[in-house]
Design a protein around this nucleic acid. Structure first.
Lengths: 204, 204, 204, 204
DNA sequence: AATGAATGAGCCTTCATTCAT
DNA sequence: GATGAATGAAGGCTCATTCAT
């Protein structure tokens, strides 16, 4: 490989990186709109307007609406997972793990509930629209693995799938209530997850 | 109150009942279309065509699409709940309750998964569209009460909400897999709910 | 079959006829727009606006743009063919046939050139877009048969396909010139078709 | 005129030639895309991608899409005409001319039908879009002259326009059938042109 | 000289809703 | 009571063209 080829490759890489950066940037803006209105109620026009981009640009970077949405969801959920792993890493004892996990769940609901709705939205869409299925399936597997790691830290032997069903089921309940009921605050959320973690330990 | 007024009232009632019957009839047809395509992908035209009704009639009996949908969901979920209660009534011992509940869950997934998607669909919609909120909230309360009754039959003392989170979380997982993965069959579903009921008992 | 069935059938027929009439009406309006701008340059909005119809109505009667266009072309070309046959029927002697055919060609160019462009337009489109192929193929066969009938009246034995190639080739030339060149008038068109008919007779 | 001016002029010429060469190069690539999809269905992006050029370059060398297209068509048809003339030059006797012309027509359909569609496409476009008219008119005159020269070689006295109408009309038919009907092969094309040349001779 | 990011007007299509019959 | 014709706003998407680099 000579110098010229290297240079060309470098330039192509830089361009590709730049494009990826831009896509990420757009996705961040798009998520802001999607999170508020949901998948079905958010038009590309909405996304463009809300984030000061032109409609054409959205299609310049993303083949179609589906690609944009799945990109957003994937990006977002990956961030969430790595954040979660990052936090859980700090746990040494089972008690610490339990505490950190509890804090994280509460914190996510209280500061980020709106954002997580998007994930539930797309997941439900995938029940009717096959195009979302690969993305959703992948992400759900990743989430179960996360729960598995948390369970390990908590020294639980139970089936990760069951634990995930429990945690995810409760997460949705808390999210829904915290979002839609003004009287439902942090305290209630904390209580909800305290019960949940107790149940996790009971399951084993 | 005189005789005439009574007569008028009677007639109005008869009319109202007739109207209600018709609405119920329409709803049954509409559900058939909705369960296949989902809320967002089903137009009123689809519903009208699939059930041999005229487009105008839909708006004659229902103010708008929202009212039709919520009517359908309420009707459907109520039926489900009373069916579930009906079955659970037969249980005398905790073991019978456990067995019946297990069978019911499996049976519902295997024969009716497609239908239940609609419920998950609307529930998710309610996260973004307030008009669905009352319906969804009411129904979810009813479902938790059902789980409470099941728990009683199983002689479990645990918090119904936690049990509901677990069962509902697992139900969604099984539904999703059974619907989208051809290799995922009754056997897998049975195993899933066996784990779930074991967990319920562990929780207490 | 009882009276009721008959009544229902009658009503359905009437409705279907009414719909067909409306489609024909829309097609007539649409053709007016299409002949001016051509297929590629005419949007459904153009058609709707130019004929005082709403955009939605176009789609209420026609599945999509393709169906509308093919409907227009078929309808139009069929009219042309039956008109042509109607005129040629009057011919008794070969000389009369020759004269009538000549007059008809000239008349069509002079009064209807613009309209016939649409046919050439769609025929060319069919080279690139298969959806037009059935319509175009059918119509071209019908046109060759028409030329066959004319040839019979003129007592020519030559292959109808060759005669059609000649007449159609010249028709396009005359149409193009008459349409685009202001100095090219009826006299020139007449001369063109005189040469053509002489050639037809020469071919035999 | 002094030496300096000369030098500048020379340099300008060289530049202009270089630019012309580049335009020709681009045109060749563009034709490849146009030939497949047709004028209306080919975007500048398609052309750029298919030929590994940048989108901007297209506009750098050509004012707009129209100029690019007309340039392509002119270039292409000129090549075709000179090729045709080149072949016909070899004919000495009328029989040779006839044979060569027949072979050429068949060969063109069989190996190049797709390419010639473009010409028909633009010619039809010119019926609705005046910008194509000069190009189309010029080219059609040139084609009639070619037919004139062929007729001369075949020692036919008939009007070139009539002969062109016949040949061109049949060429289009053969092209359309050969392109769209898999059962229509070389044999059928040969028969078609045999009839056509017989007719030419009959016309005189 | 050459690139490709960005634009925005325009296209086809869908759909809840209205209304005359 | 019931129908379905008609509407028009909105949606996803395409594309020639411009412009900063």
């Amino acid at each position: 490989m000579n110098a010229l080829t290297n240079k060309l490759k470098e330039r192509a890489d830089r361009k590709s990186t730049k494009r990826e950066d831009k896509k990420r940037l757009i996705a961040e803006s798009a998520i802001k709109a999607l999170v508020v209105l949901g998948y079905a109620n958010t038009s590309l026009r909405d996304i463009a307007e809300q984030s000061g981009m032109s409609l054409g640009m959205l299609h310049y970077y993303f083949e179609d609406k589906i690609e944009l949405i799945t990109y957003c969801v994937t990006r977002y959920k990956e961030d969430f997972i790595s954040q979660l792993d990052g936090v859980m890493e700090q746990a040494v004892t089972p008690e610490q793990a339990e505490q950190l996990f509890h804090n994280l769940l509460v914190h996510t609901i209280v500061t980020d509930a709106a954002t997580h709705r998007l994930w539930f939205d797309i997941r439900t869409q995938s029940l009717f629209d096959e195009v979302f299925l690969p993305t959703v399936t992948d992400l759900e597997i990743a989430l179960i693995e996360v729960v598995q790691r948390v369970a390990n830290k908590m020294q639980l032997q139970a089936d990760a799938e069951v634990l995930y069903a429990l945690v995810n089921g409760m997460f949705r309940i808390q999210m829904q209530r915290y979002t839609s009921d003004d009287d439902y605050g942090r305290e209630q959320v904390e209580a909800g997850f305290t019960k949940t973690i107790a149940a996790m330990k009971a399951i084993g």
